[in-house]
Nucleic acid binder design. Structure first.
Lengths: 191, 191, 191, 191
DNA sequence: TCCTAAGCGAGACGGTACGTCCGGTCTTTGC
DNA sequence: GCAAAGACCGGACGTACCGTCTCGCTTAGGA
């Protein structure tokens, strides 16, 4: 009949304060100048309270991402019936986020975090939609006859997300027409 | 009559020892567990000798890459006349390098380094061929009529390189047929 | 009509478990590596149960001493009629306890505790007999004409106890004849 | 021809600052509320600079004592020809130091430190003169016929020093005549 | 029989200090 | 003037305890 759980419960206040502080410092300092000690101070929390619930800063970032505190909206592509336009708009949204220096810094820091921590890597890919929403949109493009039926959709979406990452890593500024060209690169020009 | 340059010249021995030690530790410990102090000890060199010539570990890694000490061969795609086969072979070479845990660790660490340091980012992209050899090979594919003439080659190569990076970040193991599918994703299925 | 005392009474089980655990850890770790947290764990008790009844580890140690759990027998000198022999035997008993490394460690830790906490200091002095039994034995030595009638007995017993403490602090191993020499030092050689 | 020693020398400035800070904090906070971290902050020094030269706070205190920064003058007894008066004066000097709350606190902390660290224990005993100057003075008392020739001088001096320690541990305030009584306790009344 | 106060275990929390590692800078000596 | 050796200040690491607190349960009068 009993829950078997005695003692004080985990403080939601502390948890939220930690995540918020993490986001704040992550945006300003970047992933590897991010310190647990700094987060604790910023959050007004004891270091041990962080270590009690997260083994390191990797999973902490992952949880921030899960809560949608790092990337806006999860970048789900629209469906207006025109795949090419929808994907270009999706890329525009992402690059719009990257034009802001803060956004760009967060994004590159996320890549850094992903390189160190699988969990972050998977979540980053998924946040951009590579796992579900993007593939689904491509699937509807196939149904609409705008994409060849035997196109490897998973790989196409990986390539799209990858192109965004390459741009971020090489700090290549976005030129007009680039989103369309990237879409053309993966779903073909004349289809 | 002289240029006035007096005193000892930079020790090539020390320089090489430092680069070699960097590569060794980079492969085992990864980018951000890489320490200048550790490199100095491993190289049998004073810390100051490193700081005298490199401002931080980013450019140090960049120099290692320039010297071809981190990525093998620079991954130049062949030209057998069949673009699809050539690109698949190129991907096979890269993924072959990534199958080895050491290679995979180096690659992810490079991504991490790239996220911090533009120079590394650009060199990483170029080492994979995105800037020249890959685009050139795609160009010859266009000439051979295997790729539509108006395909955005720069973007195609970025998407290819990006796909590799996404795979590395999400630690997705390579399945048989994946290289071909990736190539199909960017140059079309039925061409 | 009643005092109005409601609720559960203090658990004797917990009290005894705490004192026993304290003695155990005190002997092995020493006074200032002794932690309330460690005692609680060792005793299978909640920390708060300790803090409810003792303000700090000083009084906890004092209570252990009061219960006779730390020093054996309270070191009461015998009375065979020969003061010199009786005091030497008393010293032998104490030094016998100090020869054992555990006993020596306990004794030094008690000195440490005494330096921090008056209560412990007084109890330590009394446990060795300086306040009552030792002075009484000296008094009977005076009556028997073995000690000059105007000897300051209180000070003599302090000096004796003090000599033991000095030996413990400087870890001077006991040589044969030392107890007799110490007795001679305070009650004279030829009396 | 060479000394074989390269690199910067130990900073005397830092060493002295550390010792001074230690003395300052030792006097105010006592031995076991003394923290390496606090000393470093007080001295304006990095923690590592302390750990580089001292393994723990015990030897640090010992060095302070060696430098005469903790106990004044080393308490060497005078020689006016009258042992009893000289020893009483020596006790007066010590108890005079103990009347001051700061002095008393330092002394008790030293006992605490001595209980933990042999080196401190030996130095504390020696600082009070038990090893040399006190025994020598007693020796001259024997030559002058004021002390029986077969009195165990080493033990007598230990008993004297011990009596002081017992007083300190039990916080017994000094009454008039106490120094004389203590001297009488160890060198006899009517000799 | 309920009510209520207290004891108790468990354990989270804000803190302080631990002892270690490394970042960069500086000094000393030798080549 | 470069390079080794290495001391130095600073800052973060991850761990151990501090003393306080909250929680759910048990114990035992008083209503």
């Amino acid at each position: 009949m009993t829950t078997g759980r005695r003692g004080a419960r985990r403080s939601e206040t502390a948890r939220v304060a930690i995540l918020a502080a993490t986001v704040r410092l992550f945006a300003t300092r970047g992933y590897d100048h991010l310190s647990i000690e700094g987060i604790a101070a910023e959050a007004g929390v004891a270091k041990q309270t962080i270590y009690r619930w997260w083994p390191s800063k990797g999973p902490l970032i992952a949880e921030c991402m899960l809560e949608g505190m790092l990337l806006p909206g999860r970048f789900v592509p629209r469906d207006t019936g025109d795949v090419r336009a929808d994907l270009a708009a999706w890329l525009d949204a992402i690059f719009g986020f990257l034009i802001d220096p803060t956004g760009e810094s967060i994004f590159r820091s996320l890549i850094s975090a992903a390189a160190e921590n699988v969990e972050v890597g998977v979540r980053l890919r998924d946040s951009l939609g590579a796992a579900s929403s993007l593939v689904e949109r491509l699937g509807r493009g196939v149904e609409a006859g705008q994409i060849p039926p035997d196109a490897p959709l998973q790989e196409v979406s990986e390539a799209l997300v990858g192109a965004v990452i390459v741009r971020a890593l090489s700090r290549t500024p976005l030129a007009p027409g680039d989103p369309e060209r990237l879409v053309d690169a993966v779903i073909g020009v004349h289809r």
